[in-house]
Computed example of a mutant assay.
Amino acid sequence: MKHFVLLLLFTCFSSFAQSKCFSHLAYGKSRQQVLDLYIPTGNLNDLPVVILLHGGAWSMGGLEYTGKHAQDICNQGFIVANVDYRYVSDKISARDLLADIGAAVAYVSDVSGKYGYSKNGYHIVGISAGAHLALLYGYTNKNMKSITALCAPSRLDSLEILEFLKKNGLLEVIEKLAGAKFNANGANPKFIAISPFSTISNTPTLLIHGDADPVVNVSQSQNLYIELKRKGVEAKLIIRDGKGHDVGMNTPETEVQNIKDITEWIELHNK
């Protein structure tokens, strides 16, 4: 484990000469309440600040999932906080994960004076489970200028999606996320409460989804986009033809296009 951490530190500091990465900064007491802060060289006054959330079904993964993407976004002239968060359990639900994100955002703001970037007015980006959390946090907090969600589960109160998750062994995870057992015969207010579809607020939202996603059907983003437009929220939907649940982020040319679309969306709303 010691050698792995040293490798992360070496990679963080030596991969790119034009930026620095301050690794495993603690924003809380849990070992997972840490973030990597990627900062370009030069004047940071007007640069966008991005909160990046990894995927992993709310129950696995970490900073290594999104480290390359964080560096790629940073290389476009952005400050990036690549944020880890606790896994769901019988005692940790979506409310706690949102509290983790809130604490991470507060930490990034608190240390802004030390590094010289903006104290507020940030953007949030997430992939998969991280996209769900990015949407949920962005819609229930007023401190984000924009949201970008890649392959996001957006309606967890849907019987269709829950039956699909059950077949894939993820229903128990969703129940822990909601802090309740799913009842297919009645209303599930706690599942509605953790569904971004039901918590929409006026935060500009970019949705990117693969039309061959076998884990989160593309209809989740399509239906959210329709609802956003119906409610008058500025939104954009990009469908990646033939791409699966990684939305092409593991394919060099598609990752480049995704990073371009993400950074252009952020720049558009960094006023």
Results as ranks from 00 to 15, higher is better:
S201T: 15
Y65L: 13
G55Q: 05
E172S: 01
Y107V: 10
L206H: 02
I127H: 15
E234P: 12
T203F: 00
N45D: 15
E253P: 07
P48F: 02
D261K: 03
I161R: 00
G77V: 02
S109L: 08
N143W: 02
L206T: 00
T148Y: 03
S14M: 15
Y137L: 12
D110P: 06
A193K: 07
N45L: 09
R240P: 09
K229Q: 15
G242N: 12
L37K: 08
F191M: 01
A81T: 02
L156F: 00
N75R: 10
S118I: 14
S59L: 10
N143T: 14
P40Q: 07
V108Y: 13
M249N: 15
L237M: 11
D213R: 03
L98G: 10
N168Y: 00
P252H: 10
E163W: 01
A212C: 10
S201Y: 04
H132L: 14
L25A: 09
S154G: 10
L268V: 08
L162G: 06
A149E: 01
G210Y: 04
G77P: 06
N270G: 05
R240Y: 11
V49Y: 06
K181S: 09
V105P: 05
L177D: 02
Y87T: 02
V216T: 13
A131T: 13
Q71Y: 00
G55V: 05
Q33T: 08
P214D: 11
E175Q: 04
F191N: 03
Q32H: 12
I262C: 07
K166R: 07
V111N: 09
G210K: 02
G56W: 02
L165F: 05
A178G: 02
I194Q: 01
F164W: 05
Y38F: 13
T203M: 04
Y107I: 07
L162V: 04
K68Y: 04
N82A: 09
L136I: 13
H24I: 14
Y225H: 15
E175I: 06
L136A: 13
A57H: 10
S219M: 11
Q71G: 07
Y27L: 05
F13N: 07
Y115G: 09
N185H: 06
F10K: 11
I124K: 08
V111F: 13
H245W: 05
S219A: 12
C151G: 10
G248N: 08
I238Q: 12
L135Q: 10
Y27N: 03
